[in-house]
Design a binder for these strands. Structure first.
Lengths: 230, 230
DNA sequence: ACCCTATCTCGTCACCTTGACGATTACTGG
DNA sequence: CCAGTAATCGTCAAGGTGACGAGATAGGGT
């Protein structure tokens, strides 16, 4: 760090906010109201304030876009993107954060982004250029990170409400990975891993069949051995 | 991204450069020649040039500090650190990169950092404040990332020279994880994973015992199933 | 030449996890 | 009451892993 003259950079945070909505893996996107890329879809984000820490900026964006407190869900740093020319206006380094939230009752209670909505990730990733800037690549990185983390962490519970059934948890895995899992083996795995699930004693019958037990997320954060997609 | 006025940031890259040196897991540190933290140890790093991409800046630092081309070894983005006040001079966001290199013949062929050296990571991490700025935390993150990645990738070969024996590869795992592994089970695992190792046909007798076959790194980058530390 | 030691390499065996799948339970809707 | 649906429990074979025995092949000392 030879601190003499150094070029001016702008620093932003961008949010890859993922959820599972009616059985589909979806990401929050906003329609840009200004140039450049006016009218195009983009990831929510904004400039970091002068005395604001990076995680605080990401939490502020999360609140502004979803009205969600981070008590439920999960937020972690994803990666940083700073290629020259990624923003045509000036040199911008963007620190991307990955957020996982349960299906929101209010689609988006946000204040800023009136034109924000969840869209299925497979349709967003199918064609390059769906999103402005390099947000295609950022979204792809976030989706891959989320898919990988379901294998060896209990992060899938971040997509669920506070209380959920084994079947609902399995639906999360199936939506995120785009595969079908055997209900019996999945049930054995998640109930057999100590600390993954905490029983509430209650049961529910939201679906058609036999009532299912309700669980809360347990204290275990890392799955050993992992739950592998084949 | 509401592009109006935004505060000025400086952007740097810092390098967590790890190797295995005489059986010990070690990181490259430099002695700072200027304020702040003059005379203290720190991770190598520097400001990003105006039209330089972030990976290019990291590669440049790697070359300047070690003279090593990235053909051997491995370099990936680790995380970004931007807390207000982490640099007392001004607001600085640092993008940290993680580099894994084989034991270098020339300790450090670098040009800039005359006072750079590899130091064992356990001694650096034992006491908080070993390194300037927040480099303690950055180093800890890099070390944990490297330890985790040995489990499910073939990245341990990045610590080895172009040709190596199974025993040398096992020594890498033992040094990085700080554990002892059963030589027979380890041999079965790495030779039984398709694409992990590529046989050269040659053999060597660097150690005391029976000659060992020499391998090169194979095409497989991800280990399925992983090689778990117990 | 001989033994000792160190290391590599191959085998064996018990245990655990997983994938495939049958069977039972307990609810809803007609 | 019956069909449909989903939850939950069991069974079994296949594959991976930890613990460990045994042979192979070098160097070094006497």
């Amino acid at each position: 760090m030879a601190g003499s003259d150094h070029p001016p950079f702008a620093v932003t945070v961008d949010l890859v906010l993922l959820t599972v909505r009616s059985g589909r893996f979806a990401a929050l996107v906003v329609e840009r109201g200004e140039q450049p890329f006016r009218g195009r879809l983009a990831l929510p984000g904004g400039f970091v304030h002068p005395d604001e820490d990076l995680p605080d900026a990401a939490l502020r964006e999360l609140r502004e876009e979803t009205g969600l407190a981070p008590s439920l869900g999960h937020l972690e740093q994803l990666a940083s993107y700073g290629a020259p020319g990624r923003d045509p206006r000036q040199r911008v380094v963007s620190v991307a954060y990955l957020g996982l939230v349960p299906d929101l009752p209010e689609p988006v209670a946000g204040t800023d982004a009136a034109a924000s909505q969840f869209m299925p990730v497979d349709s967003l990733l199918r064609t390059a250029g769906s999103l402005a800037f390099d947000h295609d690549a950022i979204l792809a990185d976030g989706v891959e990170r989320a898919r990988a983390k379901l294998e060896y962490t209990s992060l899938a519970t971040a997509f669920c409400p506070a209380e959920f059934t084994v079947g609902e948890l399995r639906a999360v895995y199936e939506a995120v990975w785009g595969v079908e899992l055997d209900p019996r083996n999945f049930h054995r795995k998640v109930t057999g891993t100590p600390g993954f699930l905490a029983s509430t004693g209650a049961s529910t019958t939201r679906g058609g069949g036999r009532p299912a037990q309700l669980y809360r997320r347990g204290p275990t954060r890392t799955l050993m051995p992992p739950l592998l997609r084949t």
